[in-house]
Amino acid sequence: MNGANAKMAAQTGSRRGLSVVGVILCLAALVILIVQTAITTPSQLWILAGMVGLSFLIEGSFRVFKIRPVRASS
C-alpha cells in the first residue's frame, strides 16, 4: 500500500517521502522476519515460499492460458 501511495503521491496529495519510508520499513520488517525464521525454524520458510508461490502460480496460469480477460478493479 505504501508503494501504491508513493507512486500516486501527486494524485493523492501525499508526501511521497513518508510512503517511501513505509515501503522501506515494511520490506526491512519482512527481511528481518525471513532471516529470523531461517535461523530458528527454517522449515517455516518452505510454507512461506509455498504461500507466495501458490499465489503466483494461480495468477500466472490465468495469464499464460488466457483463462479469462483480466481487467482493473473499480
Binding site: M1, N2, C26, L27, I47, M51
Partner: peptide, 22 residues
Amino acid sequence: VDLSSLSTMGSAGFLLSCSSSP
C-alpha cells in the same frame, strides 16, 4: 499448522501487502 508458522505466514502476507512496492 502450528501457531508460530501461522503467525509468520500471516505477518509476512500482511507486510507484503503493506509494502506493495512498484
